[in-house]
Simulated scan of single mutants.
Amino acid sequence: MERLVDVAPGVRLWAEDLPATGSDPAPEPVLLVMGANASGLTWPDELVARLAERHRVIRYDHRDTGRSTWAFDERPYAIAELARDAVAVLDAFDVPRAHVVGMSLGGVLVQLMLLDAPGRVATATVFCTAALGGYGSPDLPPPSAELLALWEHMADPRDVDAELDWRVAHWRLLSGTGTPFDADGFRALERRVIAHAGRHDNTAAHARAAQDGLDRGDELAAVEVPVLVVEAPEDPINPPPHSGHLARALGRGRLVRIPGMGHAITGTVVAPLAAAILTQTTGAHAPQR
C-alpha cells in the first residue's frame, strides 16, 4: 500500500507499506531509512523480499527525493528534522514501535531516533554510517578524496543520460572493490528511481541541510535499545574505524562484519545483510556480554 504522509506544512512524504509474506499472523514492522539524497526505492527488492518473509516492511522517500515534496530552497530544514519525519511515517501507519534499519545518513537518523524517541524502536540495525559527532575525532577518517571530488559535481545540471552515467560512476566508487560491480544493474535501479520521482535532477538538499544538533555522541552510551552495527570493510565514506567506534559508543551495541561490502547494497551482500538484520530483529543473536 502506498500513501502520502503529511510531516510539516506543505511537506508530504511518499511511503509504502508492504505486507509480510510469511505465516506469522502478527508480523512485527520494520522501517527502512535510506541514506542522503536517496529514494526509498534504493532499497533492493531482493532485500525487501527477504525481510518481508518475517516482517511487515515500510519504506519511504525522504524530503527532496522520489515522490516526496521537493522544496528545500523554499523551506530549508536541518538533518535532525529528517529523523522526526521517520517517526511521523510510523505514526501515519499506526505503528507504535518498529525494528528500524538505517543506511548511511539513515543510520545517523536512527541514532537520533534512539535518543529522542527510544520507545518507538524495538531494535536498530545501522550500516555504512558514523556515530553522531564522530567526524570530530582525529582517529576517524573522512570520505575518500576521489569521492569528495565526485561530490563537487553532484548538483551539476545534466541531461538524463549524463545523470545516469554520473550515478553509476558514483555507485562504482561507493561499492569499493570487494565485490563484483554490476554497472547495468545499478543503471537499471537508477532508471527506476528517476521514473518513480518523475525527474532526474539532484538538488543535493541533504548535503546543504543544517547539521545543528548532531554532535550528541556522548549520549549514545545511555541507549538501552539493542543496536546492531554492520561493518562494511570497503566503505569509502565511513571505513571500518567508524563502525567499531559506533558499536563501542552505544550502550547496547554489537558489531558484525560483512566481508567485501562497500557503501552499497550490491547483489552479493544482500543475503548476508538480510541474515544479519533478521538475526537482530528476531533476537536470535548471542546474549550481550
Rank of each mutant, 00 (worst) to 15 (best):
E53P: 02
T125G: 02
G283P: 00
I265F: 15
V121Y: 14
T266L: 04
I277Q: 06
E53Y: 00
P142C: 01
P226M: 03
A221C: 03
S23V: 09
H170C: 13
V256S: 05
R63S: 00
P96R: 12
W171Y: 13
V110E: 10
L278Y: 00
S243W: 05
P239K: 11
P19I: 10
A122C: 08
E53S: 10
W166R: 15
D212K: 12
E163I: 06
E234C: 13
G260V: 01
R254S: 02
W14F: 13
A286P: 10
V256Q: 06
V48T: 15
G185V: 06
I194G: 09
L148P: 00
R252D: 02
A275T: 09
A207K: 02
A130K: 11
D156Q: 04
P239S: 11
Y60P: 11
A249K: 07
Y60S: 10
G251I: 08
V110F: 09
R192W: 00
D24W: 03
I277F: 00
M154G: 00
S243M: 06
A88R: 10
A284Q: 11
R199Y: 04
N202A: 04
T203R: 08
S104M: 14
R3C: 03
R59M: 11
A52H: 11
A52S: 15
G244M: 07
A36D: 14
R54Y: 02
H206Y: 08
A52D: 08
H196P: 04
G134H: 14
L112V: 13
A209S: 09
A271M: 01
V270K: 06
R172Y: 05
P143Q: 10
Y60D: 10
A204M: 10
